[in-house]
Amino acid sequence: SADYSSLTVVQLKDLLTKRNLSVGGLKNELVQRLIKDDEESKGE
């Protein structure tokens, strides 16, 4: 998976916004949300 932890919070929020995901929470939560979304989209 992508190394989201190396991105800035601003970059993470931009990715979340593009996916229509919540941008609330700490950086670690944003990273986990993106990883979870990646895993769910692979399952389709």
Rank of each mutant, 00 (worst) to 15 (best):
S1Q: 13
S1P: 13
S1W: 14
S1I: 13
S1H: 13
S1T: 13
S1R: 14
S1V: 13
S1L: 13
A2T: 14
A2N: 12
A2C: 10
A2Y: 14
A2D: 09
A2E: 11
A2H: 13
A2I: 15
D3F: 15
D3Y: 15
Y4P: 01
Y4K: 00
Y4T: 00
Y4W: 03
S5A: 13
S5F: 14
S5N: 14
S5G: 10
S5V: 08
S5C: 15
S5L: 10
S6W: 08
S6G: 09
S6I: 10
L7I: 02
L7V: 01
L7Y: 07
L7S: 02
L7H: 04
L7Q: 04
T8C: 06
T8H: 05
T8E: 05
T8W: 02
T8Y: 02
V9N: 05
V9D: 06
V10W: 12
V10E: 15
V10G: 12
V10M: 14
V10Y: 09
V10A: 15
V10F: 09
Q11L: 05
Q11F: 04
Q11W: 03
Q11P: 00
Q11M: 07
Q11D: 06
L12I: 05
L12Y: 00
L12G: 00
L12W: 00
L12S: 00
K13S: 05
K13T: 07
K13N: 06
K13W: 07
K13P: 00
K13V: 11
K13L: 08
D14L: 13
D14P: 01
D14W: 15
D14M: 13
L15N: 02
L15M: 08
L15A: 05
L15G: 00
L15C: 06
L15Q: 05
L15F: 04
L15V: 05
L15E: 09
L16R: 00
L16N: 01
L16P: 00
L16M: 03
T17E: 10
T17D: 07
T17W: 09
T17S: 14
T17K: 15
T17C: 09
T17H: 12
T17Q: 12
T17V: 11
K18R: 10
K18S: 09
K18G: 07
K18P: 01
R19L: 04
R19V: 02
R19C: 05
R19P: 02
R19E: 02
R19T: 02
R19D: 02
R19H: 03
R19Y: 03
N20I: 02
N20H: 10
N20P: 01
N20D: 07
N20W: 05
N20L: 06
N20K: 10
N20V: 04
N20R: 08
N20Q: 09
L21E: 03
L21V: 02
L21T: 02
L21S: 01
L21D: 01
S22L: 07
S22W: 08
S22I: 06
S22A: 11
S22Y: 09
S22R: 07
V23Q: 07
V23K: 07
V23R: 07
V23M: 06
V23T: 15
V23C: 07
G24K: 15
G24D: 15
G24F: 14
G25M: 01
G25D: 01
G25H: 02
G25T: 02
G25F: 02
G25E: 02
G25Y: 02
G25I: 01
G25W: 02
G25R: 01
L26Y: 08
L26I: 09
L26A: 13
L26R: 12
L26F: 09
L26C: 07
L26G: 15
L26T: 15
K27L: 07
K27V: 06
K27T: 05
K27F: 08
K27Q: 06
K27A: 05
K27Y: 07
K27M: 06
N28P: 10
N28K: 11
N28V: 10
N28F: 13
E29Q: 08
E29K: 05
E29P: 00
E29G: 03
E29F: 03
E29R: 04
E29D: 12
L30P: 00
L30D: 01
L30H: 01
L30F: 02
L30M: 10
L30V: 01
L30A: 01
L30Y: 03
L30I: 03
L30E: 01
L30T: 01
V31W: 03
V31M: 07
V31K: 03
V31H: 02
V31D: 01
V31C: 05
V31Y: 03
V31N: 01
V31T: 04
V31G: 00
Q32F: 07
Q32D: 13
Q32Y: 07
Q32K: 08
Q32H: 08
Q32E: 13
Q32I: 08
Q32L: 11
R33I: 05
R33F: 04
R33K: 05
R33V: 03
L34N: 00
L34A: 01
L34V: 02
L34Y: 01
I35F: 06
I35E: 08
I35N: 06
I35D: 04
I35Y: 07
K36T: 09
K36P: 00
K36W: 09
K36Y: 08
K36M: 09
K36E: 11
D37I: 03
D37G: 05
D37A: 11
D37L: 04
D37C: 06
D38G: 04
D38S: 04
D38N: 04
D38K: 03
D38H: 04
E39S: 08
E39D: 08
E39G: 07
E39I: 12
E39F: 09
E39R: 10
E39N: 10
E39A: 11
E40H: 11
E40Y: 09
E40G: 09
E40V: 10
E40A: 13
E40L: 13
E40F: 09
E40W: 09
S41W: 10
S41H: 14
S41C: 08
S41N: 14
K42G: 10
K42F: 10
K42S: 11
K42D: 08
K42A: 11
K42E: 09
K42N: 11
G43A: 13
G43I: 13
G43N: 13
G43Q: 12
G43K: 14
G43T: 12
E44P: 13
E44M: 14
E44S: 13
E44K: 14
E44Y: 13
E44A: 13
E44I: 14
E44N: 14
E44D: 12
E44G: 13
